[in-house]
Computed example of a mutant assay.
Amino acid sequence: MASHRRSSQPGLTHSARVTVLSAAAATAAAALGAAPAAVADPGDGPDSSRATVDRLFQEAEKATEQFNKAGEKADRLREDVSHTQDSVARGQERINRMRGALGSVAGAQYRSGGMDPALALLLSADPDSYLEKAATLDRISERQATALLDLQQAQRRLGQERAEAARDLVELERSRAAVAHHKRTVERKLGEARRLLDSLPPEDRADFDRASRSGRGQLPELSGLAPSSARAAAAVMAARNAVGRPYVWGANGPSGFDCSGLTQWSYAQAGVGLPRTSQAQRYAGRQVSLSEARPGDLVAYRSDASHIAMYMGNGQVVHAPYPGAPVRYDPVGMMPVSSVTRV
């Protein structure tokens, strides 16, 4: 869903110079479904329309990554809240047991009448026996004092855990609201792109459709440099098998993908856990130069890393481009490269 403009990377073919996103706009319109056609400005030509579609897809992709980030945070907070609530419940049970034990001791003392120890010694028929009992009672009193201290500490910890759970619940609601906000932004941007595409003359849309098929189904040879590791090789094979599956924003497989969802899913098939967003994935390993890229390396695009692909060798990447364009191969220089990461 990005503005696929050529970077200044040397050695690219003429096909790499095509604005890939714009050229595939017609298929995006079909995938997004029918909508009332917008009326194009008579002063807008095909170039202006392509630029607008590029911008809308790029903005929608950035919003998609924010949607993924907010969703990932919400999932983590849900797990944290669940664990904290379990801990609070266990802590409350422990406090109840401690209170029960202390209550039993207090009840026994009450039933004894709370007689002054000196008077009890004077009235005792067996002073030696009384002194032994008194020493035992002193030890019991010490244990009771320790138990009271433990109870107080447990109550403080429980209060802290309850406060933590309350804060997490508030943050969870904020994350849910952020998810909904970014979802609305994505849908609005894609809707604008759809209406613009529907307003274009049929011949322009046909040109876009023809160009959008470039790169689809071309399997780059993995000759030359091999993947850097067995797990990278496994991720490469998973990504190759995903070619042709649809772009679905916010999805991470197996039936559909967005850009970071594809790379996350591919490495998951190799037993490697990647973060959900392209911005986080760019730091999920060691960064290398583009000239050192090997199959399986992650190629992030634009300065904000709002798009990501997997290098496949022979100057090609595989990626999930944008709505309407399935997972496919494109030249590595289709957009400005911001980083290459070896997982």
Rank of each mutant, 00 (worst) to 15 (best):
R5N: 14
S8G: 09
Q9I: 09
P10H: 03
G11I: 04
L12W: 10
A16P: 08
R17N: 13
V18K: 09
T19P: 07
A24D: 13
A26S: 13
A28E: 08
V39M: 05
D44L: 12
D47M: 07
S49Q: 11
R50L: 07
R50F: 09
R50C: 06
E59D: 15
A63Y: 04
E65K: 07
N68E: 15
G71K: 08
E72T: 07
D75T: 08
R76K: 14
R78S: 09
E79C: 03
D80A: 13
D80R: 12
H83E: 08
Q85L: 11
R90Y: 07
I95V: 14
I95G: 05
R99C: 02
G100I: 00
G100C: 02
L102I: 05
A108N: 10
R111I: 04
S112Y: 05
S112W: 05
P117K: 08
P117R: 05
P117V: 02
L123R: 11
L123C: 04
A125H: 13
D126Y: 05
D126I: 06
D128P: 02
S129P: 00
L131V: 13
A134C: 06
A135N: 13
T136E: 11
T136M: 10
T136P: 05
R139N: 04
T146Y: 09
A147D: 06
Q152K: 15
Q152I: 08
Q160H: 15
Q160L: 13
A166P: 03
A166C: 02
D168L: 11
E173A: 15
R176T: 06
A178F: 06
V179T: 06
H181G: 10
H181W: 10
V186Q: 12
V186N: 11
R188A: 13
L190S: 03
L190R: 04
D198H: 15
A206D: 10
A206N: 09
A206P: 04
D209W: 03
S214E: 14
S214H: 13
G215T: 02
L222Y: 10
P227A: 00
P227V: 00
P227S: 00
S228T: 13
S228D: 12
S229W: 05
A230M: 08
A233P: 07
N241D: 10
N241C: 04
P246F: 06
A251E: 01
A251L: 01
L262V: 07
Q264V: 01
W265L: 05
A268D: 03
R276H: 11
T277K: 02
Y283D: 14
A284K: 01
R286C: 03
A293E: 00
R294E: 01
R294F: 01
D297P: 09
V299G: 05
A300S: 15
Y301F: 03
S306I: 04
M310V: 10
Q316D: 07
V317W: 08
H319I: 02
A320F: 05
Y322S: 09
G324V: 00
V327P: 02
R328T: 13
D330P: 10
G333M: 02
S338E: 00
S338H: 03
T341I: 04
V343S: 09
